[in-house]
């Protein structure tokens, strides 16, 4: 069996990114956001976000580029701190759900039998419960706080990837090259690691980008329901606060938070599209 890819995929991906202006834009947004998030996490940026620097609700000016909020805190600093929250939410939720999904998917697909029956039963059950209700129940029970949000989002979102991975593993399990590996006495681990993983990692990467942005979007909804992140400004809470501000003409916290979130979600959407075009072997044939 011929190995599915000839040219290194990251090269094709990079070429796909660099040949399109929109993709360059998306990649830069993601890189800049990561940088901002890291700076905010280490305290280089926006460590004084909770200090009042001006009057309440000062409109944007040269001094305060994004204006101030009700307590006179800088909206720009809150946005930066919010970037940290959004990026870490996306990252942890995507990582968690991918770990659960991949482990269960590979186990079910590879070993089959009773393991498979159990995993399929588990994910059929979880998909039957509307996402939003499961998410609400979990956050409701786990209480408020950032870790509770990571866990409840992660536990809600692994199903899609698990299903895809399981399908792919079943498809590859009976291909000649895996049978050949069994014939020369390769261990389960070796077969999974060296032979199956290269065939499923495109799913992992595409799903990572997808879950990342869905997690960021879901955080807003939780914030609106009062189940969001406490003690730290998030884009969700900033947009949520705007429901009383907008009518009074205080447009800046809403606009900037919406814009920030729009940009990052858009960037991830665009990148996952490009990733899909590059990595999905099914699409490559066409």
């Amino acid at each position: 069996m011929q190995h599915p890819y000839k040219t290194p995929l990251w090269k094709i991906f990079l070429r796909n990114i660099l040949t399109s202006k929109i993709n360059i834009f998306a990649l830069s947004i993601v890189c800049i956001s990561c940088l901002i998030a890291l700076c905010a996490a280490t305290g280089i940026l926006a460590n004084q976000w909770d200090v009042s620097i001006s009057d309440s609700h000062t409109p944007p000016s040269l001094q305060h580029i994004c204006g101030t909020d009700i307590l006179g805190r800088s909206v720009l600093d809150k946005l930066i701190k919010g970037t940290e929250v959004a990026m870490s939410t996306g990252f942890f939720v995507a990582t968690l759900s991918i770990i659960i999904g991949v482990v269960l998917g590979v186990l079910a697909g590879y070993f089959g039998g009773i393991v498979d029956t159990c995993v399929v039963w588990l994910y059929s059950t979880i998909t039957s419960i509307p996402n939003i209700m499961l998410l609400l129940s979990l956050t409701f029970i786990l209480g408020k706080g950032i870790v509770a949000i990571y866990i409840s989002l992660g536990v809600t979102m692994w199903v899609g990837i698990c299903r895809l991975i399981r399908g792919e593993v079943i498809k590859h399990k009976n291909r000649e090259y895996i049978l050949a590996a069994s014939a020369i006495g390769a261990s389960h681990f070796r077969k999974l690691w060296y032979h199956l993983l290269p065939n499923i990692w495109h799913i992992i990467i595409i799903q990572f980008a997808l879950i990342f942005q869905v997690a960021i979007k879901s955080e807003v909804m939780l914030s609106y329901l009062g189940l969001g992140i406490q003690n730290s400004p998030s884009w969700g809470t900033m947009i949520d606060e705007a429901k009383t501000e907008l009518i009074r003409g205080i447009w800046w916290p809403f606009t900037f938070a919406t814009l920030a979130m729009f940009l990052i979600v858009l960037a991830f959407n665009l990148l996952s599209d490009t990733l899909r075009d590059t990595l999905d072997p099914k699409l490559k044939k066409k």
Binding site: I239, L266, N269
Partner: peptide
């Protein structure tokens, strides 16, 4: 395709606030 991605990328709460403020208010 680009327009649909843009429409998908705006937060639900932003839609609500923006539309209510603009069209209703």
């Amino acid at each position: 395709v680009l327009i649909s991605i843009i429409l998908m990328s705006i937060s639900i709460l932003s839609y609500i606030l923006l539309f209510q403020w603009f069209f209703a208010f």
